[in-house]
């Protein structure tokens, strides 16, 4: 089995897409570097969250506020969306027709939106139990970290919609392809950050 040669992180478009593949080399590397910078941002917020664990100031803590079930469902949604995005990338690379690509992308988008909806629902149920950021340092740290991830997912969904519109207008041209490859990286990256969140914040908090 030969591993395909690669020029940038994420799925490589390969020779079949020479022009877009060339453009990707620089674009994707740049985006990758940006992701790393973003990773530092998240890393620091994780660190702050840990330092604020004890700062509940008499307010509600993880046990009163978090629910394992919804954290689990969110995890599944996001993980599956990562997989479906992978399928979309393969459809982009190996198929002529837009249909399958668009179908996978729409599935991914729906999973992403479901994730956001569930997360918002979580936040509101936390708020109803008195879990609002102004209550304590601990809750501030939680609402500094987790919604930032949610915001990233929202932006990714928005980007996905924009790319779907671009597909509708331009078909699968270079711009669309490079965009999809970069969005793929963002998507998988957000899933990686979520691993940190469910492990540290939810599971760590609930045990």
């Amino acid at each position: 089995m030969t591993t395909p040669t690669s020029r940038y992180p994420g799925l490589n478009l390969g020779k079949g897409h020479a022009e877009a593949d060339n453009a990707c080399e620089e674009l994707v590397f740049g985006f990758w570097v940006f992701m790393m910078s973003d990773l530092i941002l998240f890393g620091l917020l994780f660190g702050i969250y840990v330092t604020m664990l004890g700062a509940t100031a008499g307010g509600p803590g993880p046990h009163e506020l978090f629910e394992m079930k919804s954290a689990f469902i969110e995890t599944m949604l996001l993980l599956t969306s990562s997989f479906t995005f992978g399928m979309a990338s393969l459809a982009l690379k190996y198929r002529h027709d837009k249909g399958r690509l668009v179908a996978w992308l729409v599935v991914t988008l729906l999973l992403g939106l479901a994730f956001i909806a569930l997360e918002l629902h979580d936040f509101s149920s936390m708020a109803s139990k008195g879990g609002v950021p102004s209550r304590s340092g601990f809750l501030s740290a939680f609402f500094g970290l987790v919604p930032l991830h949610g915001l990233h997912v929202t932006v990714a969904c928005l980007w996905l919609v924009a790319l779907l519109a671009q597909i509708a207008i331009y078909g699968l041209d270079k711009g669309v392809k490079t965009g999809l490859i970069r969005l793929g990286i963002l998507w998988h990256f957000l899933d990686i950050v979520w691993i940190g969140i469910f492990s540290l914040v939810y599971l760590g908090g609930l045990t």
Binding site: S134, G137, F138, S140
Partner: peptide, 22 residues
């Protein structure tokens, strides 16, 4: 700066003197 802004605008408590800010 973002966390300081959250403190100032949305009543978070990252660095305040009360409610567990640090």
């Amino acid at each position: 700066t973002a966390l300081l802004a959250l403190d100032r605008y949305l009543d978070f408590h990252f660095f305040t003197t009360d409610l567990g800010g640090n």
